[in-house]
Structures are given as C-alpha cells and as structure tokens.
Design a protein around this nucleic acid. Structure first.
Lengths: 340, 340
DNA sequence: CTGAAAGCGCTTACAG
DNA sequence: CTGAAAGCGCTTACAG
C-alpha cells in the first residue's frame, strides 16, 4: 500500500547532476546547446529520479499551455467517435494535450463556470451549437484562437470554420434517387433545424428537386432531428397519413435506421416499395439490411483539419476562413442499386 | 481583426477593487469568509475586467491539477462513445477537467513522452491494454491514483478495477441458445485474446456448454478480434469448411454484424438456419436485420463508476478493489425469439 | 556553454 | 475579516 511521496523537482535533478536548474531546463527543452557530457549527466539524473516536469510550472513560466480544448454539446451519435479520433490524433502528433468538455444543451444563463478558455488552453475547437454566440464573440474580441466545426462564424466575427459539402452531397444523393431510380415522391426526414448541417442538407434536397423539375411539397417534409427514435416515430406517423411516397432521404444515418425500422414494421419493402438513403456514412450503415446508400461525410478529417487550422492560428500563421471538405456518394442497396 | 491583449491577472482585479490579492483569491475560492461589501466589490471588478484565473497558476500554488486523465488504446468502436460519455459527465459534475489521450497500440519501447501522469493530472483512468504494465507499476509505487477499466490489476499491485460481468453474461446468452432454442452446435466468435473481456466471455461460453452437457469442440472456436471485417472473414472461412453449426455467439456486436453479413452472403438464414447472438448491446444492434439478441454491457456506467472511484481515491476515501457491473440479456429476434 | 536571479500568477499559513 | 509575504516549479533574458 504505497504512500504518496513528494515528487522530484527540477532542483532535485540539478543537485543530483551537479548543475544549475537552468541547465536541466535546457536539456529538457533542447532549445539551447548543452555540452554532451553535461547532457548525459542530466539525463541520467532524470532517469534515476524518475523526474517528469510539472506541466503547471512549465505553463506558468512559458505562458503556453500546450493544450487544446474541445467543446461539444453531446458525446453520442455515430458522429462523435470519428471526429474525436481525428482531433486527438492531430493534437497528439503536434505534442499538445487535449481537454474535452461537453456542454449538454447550451448552458442556460451566463456560463457560470467557464470550463475551457484562455485560462487553460491555447485554443479551442468548437462543435456546432456547443458555445453561446456571446462567448464566441468574447473569445474573438480578445484574439483567442478558435476554430468552428460544422458551424459558420457568427455575424461580426471572422472565426475560421471547417465543415463539409452538405448541400452538394444532399443534392447528389437526391438526384441519384430521381435520375437513376426514377423516384419523384421523395420524403425528406429533416435534421435538427438548429444545426447548420440540417439546413444545408435541406437546401440540397430542394435544389435537386428544382434541377429535376419536381415541385417542392411540404407534406414530404418531416422532422427526424438527427435521432433514431424521433425519426422512427415521424416515419410511422407519415405512413399512417396514407401519403403516397416512393423514397426517403434521411438527413443522417441515425434517423435512416429509425426510418428503416418504421418502414419494415409497416410492411413496406425497402428498396422495392420505398427507396431509402441517408447521410454521414456511419460505421453501422453497411450492416443495415438492406445496406444503406448514403453520403460519406469525412468526419475524422473534419476533426484533424480543424485541429491543424487551430494550431496554425496559434502560431500566427495564415488560416483559411472556410474549409469545405468534399462529400461522396456511397452506393449500397437501399436505394435500389444492386449493391453487394 | 483583434490582437491578443494581455489577460488581466489577480493583481489587476485586486487593484481595481482596492483590496489585496489574498482577498480576491478568497472570494474566488469561497473557502474563507469575506465581508459582503468587499465580496461585491471584488466580483464587480472581476466581471468588469473579464478576469478568469489562470489554471496553471492555481495548480502550481495549490498543488492540485483538478484534472483527470483518460488513457485509451483507440478511439473507435461502438464502445468508446458511451464510455467517454459516462466519464466526461462524472468528471464535469465533480468540477474536474478531463484530458484524453489515445496510445494506439501500446507504444513500443519506454514511453518516451509521458503524455498523462502525475505531472499533469490528479489521477488516471486506464482502459484495457492502453498502458504498459511497467508504467502501471510505477504509478502504483509512487502512490498515484489510478483506476482500471476492463482490466484487472497487474500482479503485485492492488489497483482498483471497474468492469462488467462478462462470464456471467456470456453464460446466460449461450444457455438461452441451448435451453430456449435447442441449439447445440454453437460457434464462438472470439474477441481479441489480449482483452480480458474476451477471455471471460470465452469462459462463460465454455461454462454454459458444461452446464448443459455439451462437450467443448475447438472446431467451433474462431477469431473475430472484436472487429467487423475480421469476423466477417473468419465466418466466411468457417462456412467454407462445411462445418455443421446451428448458432453463433459473437464476443461483441461489432463482430456479430460482420458475421451476419457473411451468413447472409452464404445464403444462410438468421435465425432459422443459424441463430446469432452478440455481446455489448451496441447502439446499432436493434437496427440490424434481424435485430440482434445480445448482452447489454453498461458501458456508460463503467465510465461514470470508474470516475467516481478515482475521485474517491484522490480524496483518500475507501475504494472497492473490484467492481463488477451486472450485464443483462436483451432478447430481440436474431436468436429465434419472436422479438418485435 | 553555463549560472544567478527575476518572474510567471496564483494559494496559504502567519500575523494582526 | 484582511494584508504582506513566502512559495509552488518551472523558463528565460542577462551576464560572464
């Protein structure tokens, strides 16, 4: 049952090696040349004492935390894992640390306890709707590095953003439904309207309709809210209305799986009676039955790209105000194509 | 285009409010009574200057980081999201911060750059196989708080562990296959053998066989490695051998979805010809076709429980050496039960 | 190439 | 109830 011993400090190492703490600091940081012999001495002392420099002391003295913060509203959904994966890898590669914080819905009232910010990070990665506009503006005004993901910069600010080609992707897949499979009565299972992704995907849907000469009909618009169960219920209700439709474009794969369940329960065959397509290309999508035709969203890449942008920002390098990562049509069977 | 201004410090606040920095510190920490009038003055100054105490300075002075570290080998799989969710929520609730680090496979050689440890956290949450035994022992020896998840304490140490009833769950679901559905030729699609979860699930499988008087036959043992594609290939190969089997118990739901694909491709009907069951109850499992019968693993709870244990450890409170969270049979249709 | 010393921005006994 | 001051463990000009 070990007891907590006081950890060795740089002074202990210096004493052990018979040098000054400045010298120890230099071999640690490798920013100033130190005689080879001395270096070896110091490294031995470090190894012997099991010395690890305290991060807080380094941060305080150097005025850099070497830490990035990630703020998300919610840790769930197929979306989260790949995005964090991309971020974490890029952060680690740069030798930074990553602090993660979930806000739930945006916290009501003023942020009482500021979890992540200029006091504990060098910059922030902010995912859609996880930070109040007011706080975003404050950070912008003090010149604190922030990169937004899947959200555009609030009015009056100029915060770099990384997102994906939502509209283009949505239009592509809806056009596929129309042009390849001759579907014309296409339901749009809309996402959470507060998410910009949802808005753009709806525009893509409408654009494709226009392009193909199909009038928009709002009876074909229902709310899935990026949620399986909500989508399932919405789909079920739509079916009960008796509306005649021959395809469903789901704003994300989560709600597509919910819709699939509702369709199956109603005895509607996919894709024969109704074609179904999604958006995101979630990990489970190939395993649905039928395998889901969808738009691949490069989520991991959004994370890594945003991280690299943030690191540039921190180093005062030039940064693109908006990066739009391309999306890609992934054809499987649920659209009616004879995928494997 | 805002420029970085120097951030206000506690001295600025003190000056602005006409008090000493000690007083500002006291109203910040609320640990010593300060006259109401004075408190208000200080709070106004804080608000006016937009002051936020620098974490590094606090940490250095108080010798507590108020930060927990999470070390995982890999950020992916259905497993990750709920676990992080549980951890993050518990960490946030306790007013701590969370540092996340992924090791990839265990890093070769000595950990050159120690990412997370006593130098930047008050304690560590360690997921299976993400830290070398040697490092675990070192942390144990210096009395640094660590809690393991899904991994037992290395020999000679006594590190608290939180995991789930793997063996019991596996035995339950295999018995279900045997007793309810009369299956006796049950393939076990084993997990990664380095994970203790896999080992315990295999024991549960064998126990159920013994209990029900079925001899163990290693031809029924194949490797899925907790991976969809590996599982799919392994299943395909098994089918090609012509072995006669009437059920598959998959060590996790990811590989179950891979197996399902292989079975479908071979024209084998699930559950009529072969019953299929999994383990974990991943978010996508209800959406497979047929919906997957599986064992629910309380992954989010593992995360939150481990976090609470770690916080107790940090506060020198008593901690259970081993917490086994119960698992539960979730009956859907892939086993042959007429689930919805 | 190396050391002495100031300073980073807080907390916390110690006085009063 | 409040202030002066030491100290947390580093980095970084400044000398030499």
């Amino acid at each position: 049952m070990p007891r907590k011993e006081p950890l060795p400090t740089i002074a202990d190492v210096a004493h052990h090696a018979g040098v000054s703490i400045a010298t120890v600091s230099r071999v640690l940081n490798k920013n100033v040349f130190v005689e080879e012999e001395t270096t070896r001495c110091v490294q031995e002392a470090i190894a012997e004492l099991g010395y690890v420099p305290r991060t807080a002391a380094r941060t305080l003295a150097s005025r850099r935390t070497k830490t990035l913060g990630l703020i998300m509203s919610d840790i769930s959904g197929a979306f989260f894992s790949p995005m964090l994966r991309g971020i974490e890898a890029a952060v680690r590669q740069a030798g930074y640390s990553l602090l993660v914080y979930a806000t739930g819905e945006i916290e009501e009232g003023r942020s009482t306890h500021r979890a992540l910010g200029e006091h504990n990070t060098d910059g922030l990665l902010v995912f859609t709707d996880s930070l109040e506009i007011q706080e975003l503006v404050r950070l912008y005004k003090i010149g604190f590095p922030v990169v937004l993901m899947h959200q555009s910069s609030p009015g009056g600010t100029d915060i770099p953003t990384v997102t994906i080609e939502n509209k283009d992707g949505a239009a592509k897949i809806v056009s596929h439904l129309i042009q390849v499979h001759g579907r014309r009565r296409i339901v749009f299972l809309r996402g959470l309207s507060t998410h910009e992704d949802a808005v753009w995907r709806e525009r893509g849907y409408r654009d494709a309709l226009v392009t193909n000469g199909i009038p928009f009909d709002d009876r074909f618009l229902i709310d899935g809210k990026f949620n399986e169960e909500v989508a399932r219920d919405a789909m079920k209700k739509l079916i009960e209305t008796g509306l005649d439709f021959d395809a469903v474009f789901s704003a994300d794969d989560d709600s597509a799986s919910g819709a699939l369940l509702a369709l199956r329960e109603a005895g509607i065959r996919v894709p024969r009676d109704v074609a179904l397509v999604g958006f995101d290309d979630a990990p489970f999508s190939p395993y649905l039955n039928p395998p889901l035709t969808t738009i691949h969203a490069p989520t991991e890449e959004v994370g890594s790209t945003a991280t690299r942008q943030l690191l540039r920002l921190i180093q005062d390098e030039k940064v693109d105000p908006l990066i739009l990562l391309p999306t890609e049509l992934v054809i499987r069977s649920s659209c009616g194509c004879d995928g494997k």
